[in-house]
């Protein structure tokens, strides 16, 4: 493998990390607030379809992303209503949300679009002047589409919001000890609603990045489980945006590497190479868990009831 090929793999892998990264960043907000949303894949599918359909009809991928984020917000509210207001078990609510998103996006696609068609007006690469000419980093970091830039810019932003703002402190507080937060006058339910809405918005954007930038197509169930991997990436990243980004990059670069190895004719069974990203992720997960012990938000997965405090 030539150095040039290594750089190409890295550039392709960075772009391919986008839907994982956006979805996992969104999930990080929910989980830091104590809500475990397994429905990300369904949110992504709704975002992918909504964004695709709007871009197909209007020719504007930006409008598509906006609609995808709005749909994501609504899906986040739906999750919040069932798991925060009605206190339904989070795992079951999430699976329900996933199935709802899968079913509705399929139904809408079959009714409104019917057959796969390519999107002529998706997000193409936008090389950033000067920076994209940099050796090595130029092509990897500065010759991507806007969804990629946005996703990676969100990493420091998410870190800042979670760690340096009052809102972030509230999120962490209701995720660690909702009783204590409540006694300090923080509205636990409202914070969890907002965290789930942020998660939905980013999940919708993740879906849109898939249908508007990465593939420029919509097909039913096109996420093929990316949302579930995103949930795992949150654990992998130790509930920190930087860790999540590292996990998303590792997963998608190794995935890209295995595609390149196959095309280069490396004589390994494709089934074996296909396992590579998952195996690498499990190994890294084991190492990561040993490295940082700050770990799980204490109230993760537990509906908060004031009377039980």
């Amino acid at each position: 493998m030539t150095p040039e090929q290594v750089l190409q793999i890295a550039a392709q892998g960075v772009a391919a990390a986008t839907p994982y990264l956006l979805a996992a960043l969104g999930e990080t907000f929910g989980q830091r607030a104590g809500v475990f949303n397994l429905g990300v894949d369904g949110v992504m599918l709704m975002g992918a379809f909504g964004g695709f359909y709007v871009a197909l009809q209007t020719g504007s991928p930006l409008l598509g992303v906006a609609v995808a984020m709005l749909i994501g917000a609504l899906m986040g509210i739906l999750m919040a209503v069932s798991s925060v207001t009605l206190k339904a078990p989070q795992g079951i609510s999430g699976i329900g949300l996933y199935m709802f998103g899968l079913g509705l996006s399929t139904l809408l696609f079959e009714t409104l679009v019917r057959s796969p068609v390519p999107l002529r007006t998706g997000f193409d690469r936008v090389p950033i002047p000067i920076l994209s000419d940099l050796p090595i980093l130029g092509n990897i970091a500065f010759n991507q589409n806007v969804m990629v830039y946005a996703a990676f810019l969100l990493v420091p932003m998410a870190w800042f919001v979670l760690n340096k703002t009052v809102f972030g402190l509230n999120i962490r507080a209701v995720g660690q000890n909702p009783q204590a937060a409540d006694s300090l006058g923080i509205n636990v339910d409202r914070v969890r609603y907002l965290a789930l809405i942020i998660g939905g918005v980013l999940g919708g954007a993740a879906g849109a990045s898939l249908s508007l930038a990465q593939t420029k197509i919509f097909q039913e169930n096109m996420t093929n489980g990316i949302g579930f991997i995103a949930v795992a990436l949150v654990y992998f990243g130790g509930w920190s945006p930087m860790g999540v980004m590292f996990g998303a990059l590792l997963f998608s670069i190794v995935t890209t590497l295995q595609l390149w190895l196959q095309a280069l004719g490396v004589q390994i069974s494709p089934s074996l190479i296909t396992m590579l990203p998952s195996v690498m992720t499990i190994v890294a997960l084991i190492i990561a868990v040993r490295l940082y012990r700050t770990g799980t938000p204490a109230a993760l997965g537990k509906p908060y009831r004031r009377d039980e405090a």
Binding site: Q12, L210, Q214, N224, T255, Q262, A263
Partner: peptide, 22 residues
């Protein structure tokens, strides 16, 4: 003739990435 198998029938994203790679 370069061949990539995605080990799936319905993985749109991976098929797209395979095409990019090829």
């Amino acid at each position: 003739v370069k061949v990539i198998f995605t080990e799936s029938f319905g993985d749109t994203a991976k098929a797209t990435e395979s095409a990019k790679t090829l």
